[in-house]
């Protein structure tokens, strides 16, 4: 057990290290210079003032030392929990900006991922034993999975937001309000939350339903199901076993999907101008904000790794075969 998790943790640590290095490199390869663009915005007249300001900014952002030293400094400050200062929202620290955005992303992603998983599996399991449901769920599922995120989100924003006028199409709450714990503000939050949530939920739903349907059919045709039926086990027991076993690949799928859904939320947050991590990433790229970009990516990497680790643990709990492999027994 300890060896199994030790190995897993090592792999996760290695992944984290490589991902963070890539995150550090990529913004620095972007064309343009953040300090120059800040200077251009300040539109200083005298070259001396300009040079002094450049030196000030470069020292502030730590860009005045060679690249290798910048890289080491990056890990050193990361170890202190310091993510740097944002260039775009100067002089706010990156950590504060991200902590302000993370709740919005989580509130959007977690319900969308988990609900679509639960509802999709449930629909798929029912579709496997009901011809009528099978004939409706399956085509709808295929259409939903084949739909590009962006397009579905735009369609929802246009249909339910602009044409029907039921939901607002931008922001996390009405601009007329200030954040507070009043019912009015919470209502506004929910209203703004619903459309981006729905788009993420719908896109993921179809895939889960199709996957579960196929898995259930496969399990119901398997040898152990046939044997139970030959011994007169009621349908209920056979279905229960099939459902439990069909869930295992779906769990793996959930872990894999978490990574892509984080990327998916990027588009959603852009379409609905929702102030989550995805929206921050877009702004960081536009403003060549190295530090904000690094910080946002780090949160995504950490999120995906944590999600995978949780699924690893869950898998060990539900599938005895993983447990046995862990103990070094023959499979």
């Amino acid at each position: 057990m300890r060896r199994y998790f030790g190995r897993k943790l090592f792999v996760y640590a290695l992944t984290f290290f490589i991902a963070m290095t890539v995150n550090w490199i990529i913004p620095r390869f972007m064309p343009g210079d953040p300090v120059q663009s800040r200077l251009a915005r300040a539109s200083l007249q005298s070259p001396e003032a300009s040079a002094a300001m450049q030196a000030y900014y470069e020292r502030l952002f730590g860009l005045d030392v060679p690249l290798w030293q910048q890289y080491l400094n990056f890990w050193a400050s990361l170890a202190r929990g310091d993510l740097g200062i944002s260039i775009w929202l100067f002089p706010q620290p990156v950590g504060d900006i991200i902590l302000g955005a993370v709740p919005y992303s989580l509130a959007l992603l977690l319900p969308a991922i988990l609900l679509s998983w639960v509802v999709g599996n449930w629909f798929g399991a029912y579709a496997a034993r009901n011809r009528w449901l099978d004939n409706t769920v399956l085509p709808v599922g295929y259409v939903l999975t084949a739909t590009p995120y962006m397009w579905l989100a735009l369609l929802l924003a246009w249909g339910l937001g602009i044409v029907a006028g039921l939901f607002p199409v931008g922001g996390a709450y009405s601009f007329a309000l200030t954040p507070s714990a009043t019912p009015e503000f919470v209502g506004s939050l929910l209203q703004h939350w619903f459309l981006p949530f729905l788009s993420l939920f719908l896109v993921a739903l179809g895939g889960w339903a199709i996957g579960m349907r196929n898995m259930i059919i496969y399990e119901l045709e398997s040898d152990y199901s046939n044997y139970l039926e030959a011994l007169g086990a009621p349908r209920r027991l056979v279905r229960r076993y099939a459902f439990r076993n069909a869930m295992l690949p779906q769990l793996t799928g959930l872990a894999l999907q978490l990574g892509t859904l984080v990327a998916g939320s990027l588009l959603t947050e852009i379409v609905f101008s929702y102030p989550g991590l995805g929206y921050l990433i877009l702004q960081a790229i536009r403003n060549q904000d190295f530090f904000l970009l690094q910080g946002a990516f780090m949160f995504i990497v950490v999120g995906v790794l944590i999600a995978n680790f949780i699924i690893d643990i869950v898998y060990v709990l539900v599938d005895p075969r993983t447990r046995i492999q862990m103990q070094g027994g023959a499979a």
């Binding site: 398997s222 040898d223 152990y224 046939n226 044997y227 139970l228 030959a230 011994l231 007169g232 086990a233 027991l237 076993y241 439990r244 076993n245 295992l248 539900v318 599938d319 005895p320 075969r321």
Partner: peptide
């Protein structure tokens, strides 16, 4: 009648048991 009057030992006895259930639990469930 199945199991009580007529029973079967299948060709696929190696894979006749649910892989994610302990043998005793499966027998108890059945």
């Amino acid at each position: 009648f199945r199991f009580r009057e007529v029973s079967l030992i299948p060709q696929y006895a190696m894979s006749a048991m649910n892989p994610t259930r302990k043998v005793g639990r499966m027998i108890a469930d059945l």
